[in-house]
Design a protein around this nucleic acid. Structure first.
Lengths: 355, 355
DNA sequence: ACGTATTACTGGAACGTTTCAACCACGACA
DNA sequence: TGTCGTGGTTGAAACGTTCCAGTAATACGT
C-alpha cells in the first residue's frame, strides 16, 4: 500500500498553482510567468515547474483566470433552432473564424421563444462574454441596447439591423421572396400559397412583404394565400400540407412558397401522403437551400443563402468591433447584406398553363 | 449636462456587489443574502437592495461565483458532428434534461478529430464542469480515466462503454447492422456494399462486424464490399456513389448499406446523377432514420435510433452520478442499451430475384 | 570601486463572489 | 435583573489566478 501511481495523485482537494509552486520550489508568480511569459524564466526553472505541473496534474482554473482578467475570451451565439441545418451551417462558419483567433464560442438556442432568448442572453452576460452573435426572435433593440451599455458587442445575424445600434449581416429576404414568387409566376402559377411562420420573426415579415410586392408588381391576376405556422420546422410543414390538401381542386393553390426548407420538405412529405403530386398537382419552392433540399423526394427548388459565409462574416464583424473597443478606435457599424440566389429544381418545374 | 438617465449609469468599470451594498447602505454580505438566502433578510432591506441592483444594472459575475464555489454548474457535451441531425437531436434530448435541473450545457464538436476532441475536453476541465457527455472518436478510456481522476463524471454517448469506468448509453449497433443486412438478403440481394467511415469510430466497427456476422450466419453465397470514407457526411456519400457507379453492371453491388443517413442521402444523390435508379438498379438502406430520410428523393429505408431518448437518458445518468458524488453515495455505473428498429421504405423495395 | 543595466525571481494585492463566525438589539423567560 | 434565544446584519476570510512593484545577483562601462 505504499506505492503511489500517477493515478492516486489527485484525490484530495483540487490542485492550484500554489501547490505547483511549492513542489517546484519557486514562487507563485514564477509559475504564472512560466505559463504566460515564458521568456522571462530561465530554462532550468521552466523545466522544474513543468515537471511539477505534470506530476500534480494541474489544470488551469478558468474562472479564476477570468475573474482576474475581468472578462472572458468567449463570445456567444444565440440561434433560433439548432436543429435547423441552416443554423448549424451558420454556427460552423462563425466557429471557424472565432477559433482561428483563439477565442471560444458558446452556442444557445432560443427555440424562437423570447423568454428563452432573454435567459440565454442573461447567462452570457453573467459569463462576461466579449460579444454576442444574435439571431433574434422579435425586436432585438432592447437586447442590443442593454448589451452595448455593458460594453458587450453585438452583431445581428440573419437580420437587417439598420434600426439597431450594432452591426448586422443578413441576406436580402424581401428580394429572395420576390425572386421565388416571380419564378412561380413565370412558370404559370396564379394561385399561390405562402406557408410559414408568424410575423414576430423579421425574416417572415420581410419574405411575406417581398412576396406580396412581387405579386402586385407583376400586374397579373394572381392570388396569394398566406398560411401561418407556429414554427418553421418539418412537423409544421406536414400539418400545413394536410390543411392545403383538403381544399377542393379548383380552389387549392397550384404552387406553394415555403418560408424555409424544413417546412418545404414537410409539405412535400405531407402532399405525398395526401396523394398530391409535386410538381404536377402542386409546385413547391423552399428557402435556405439546405443540403437536404437537393436530395428531397422531389428535388426542391429553393432560395439559396450563403450560410457559412453569413456566420463567418458575422464573427469577423464582431471580432473587429471588439478590437476597436480594445484599442479605443472609433467604431462604425456596418450592415452587410448578401444576395440570395434562386436554385430551380424539379419541384417547381414548368407547368402547362391550364387554368 | 447634469441630467443622468438610466443609460449612462454603467460607463465606468463594471459594477460589483460592493457597489450595490454601498448604494443600498448595507454590508456586502447582506446583498449576498438577498440573492442566495432571501429568507434571512427583512422585507425592507430586501427592497432597498433590489432597488440598488436595478438602478446600477448589476449583473452577477459568474466567474467569481464559480471560483468561490470551486466548481461550475455546467456540463459539457462533446459530439462528433453538430451538423448531423442525429447529434442535434441527441443534444436536444440532453439539454432538456439538464435545463430542467437548472444546470447548463456547453456543446462542442470534435469533427471526428482526436486532437479537437482532446482540446475540447481540456477546455471543459479548465471550466471545471461537473460532468461530460462524450461521444468519443476512438478510444475513450484515456479521457474517462483522466476526467474521473479529477472528479468529473463522464457518460459515454452512442457507445457501449462496458470496457471503460463510466456509465454509457448506446444503441446496439451490431444488431442494427444485422437487421439491415438481413433485410437486404431477404429481398434478394447477394452483392452488397457497406459504405462508411473508418474503423477508428467504434460505431463503424460494430456496424461492420454486425453486417459481416449477418452475412456468414445466413449461410447464403453473398458478398460484402466495404467502402471506407474519411467522414460520414453528404459529400462523402456522393463521392462513394461515383466510385460505385463506374463498376460494370454485373460487378456492382445491387444494394448498399450506408452507415448513416447523411451518407445514404449523399449516395442517393450520387446514384441519381450517375443515372442509376434506386431501388431498381441499386437498393439503399441508411442508419439513424433522421427526419430527412423519409422525405428523401426515394424514401429511405433506415435503422432508427431513439435519438432524443439517448441524449436524455445520458444526461439523466450523468446527473445521477453527480448526485451520488455529492452525497457520498456509492455509485455503480450502468450501461444502458437501446434497441434500434428497422424502418423499411421504398429505397430497399423487394427486388425480383434475377441474379 | 562605483553606479547602472539586465536578468531571474519574489511577494503581495486585486478581481467579485460566498460563507461563516461574530455581533447587536430586543423581547421572553425565569 | 440577568440570561437566553432569535431575527437581522456585519466584517473578513477564502477561492486561484494575473500583474506589478520590488529585490538580489550578475555583468558592463567608466
Amino acid at each position: 500500500m505504499s506505492s503511489m501511481t500517477r493515478s492516486d495523485v489527485n484525490h484530495g482537494k483540487s490542485v492550484s498553482m500554489k501547490d505547483v509552486a511549492r513542489v517546484a520550489g519557486v514562487a507563485l508568480g514564477t509559475v504564472s510567468n512560466v505559463l504566460n511569459n515564458p521568456e522571462l524564466v530561465s530554462e532550468a526553472t521552466k523545466a522544474r515547474v513543468q515537471a511539477a505541473i505534470d506530476s500534480l496534474g494541474w489544470v488551469r482554473n478558468e474562472s479564476a483566470r477570468q475573474l482576474r482578467a475581468g472578462r472572458s475570451s468567449a463570445i456567444g451565439l444565440v440561434v433560433l433552432d439548432v436543429g435547423n441545418p441552416f443554423f448549424a451551417d451558420v454556427a460552423r462558419g462563425a466557429e471557424d473564424v472565432v477559433y482561428e483567433r483563439g477565442m471560444s464560442m458558446q452556442i444557445g438556442n432560443s427555440d424562437q421563444r423570447p423568454d428563452r432568448e432573454a435567459r440565454l442572453i442573461e447567462d452570457l452576460e453573467q459569463q462576461r462574454v466579449r460579444g454576442v452573435l444574435l439571431a433574434p426572435v422579435g425586436d432585438a433593440r432592447r437586447h442590443v441596447e442593454r448589451l452595448n451599455q455593458r460594453g458587450v458587442a453585438v452583431v445581428l445575424v440573419d437580420r437587417v439591423g439598420d434600426d439597431a445600434d450594432c452591426c448586422s449581416v443578413a441576406v436580402d429576404d424581401a428580394h429572395g421572396a420576390r425572386v421565388a414568387i416571380n419564378h412561380l409566376l413565370d412558370v404559370g402559377h396564379r394561385r399561390i400559397a405562402l406557408v410559414g411562420g408568424t410575423t414576430d420573426l423579421m425574416q417572415v415579415r420581410d419574405r411575406r412583404a417581398g412576396a406580396e410586392a412581387a405579386l402586385t408588381e407583376s400586374g397579373l391576376p394572381a392570388t396569394l394565400l398566406v398560411v401561418s405556422t407556429p414554427a418553421l420546422d418539418l412537423a409544421n410543414g406536414i400539418a400545413a400540407a394536410a390543411q392545403l390538401a383538403v381544399l377542393p381542386d379548383g380552389e387549392r393553390p397550384t404552387a406553394v412558397f415555403a418560408l424555409n426548407d424544413l417546412l418545404a420538405i414537410g409539405l412535400l412529405q405531407g402532399f405525398m401522403t395526401a396523394g398530391l403530386r409535386v410538381p404536377k398537382d402542386i409546385a413547391l419552392i423552399g428557402y435556405d437551400d439546405i443540403a437536404f433540399a437537393a436530395a428531397a423526394a422531389v428535388p426542391l427548388s429553393s432560395v439559396a443563402q450563403p450560410r457559412q459565409a453569413l456566420g463567418g462574416r458575422a464573427a469577423e464583424l464582431l471580432l473587429a468591433e471588439i478590437d476597436d473597443q480594445e484599442s479605443g478606435n472609433p467604431h462604425t457599424h456596418v450592415h452587410e447584406r448578401f444576395a440570395p440566389e434562386l436554385v430551380v429544381r424539379k419541384s417547381s418545374a414548368a407547368r402547362r398553363p391550364k387554368d
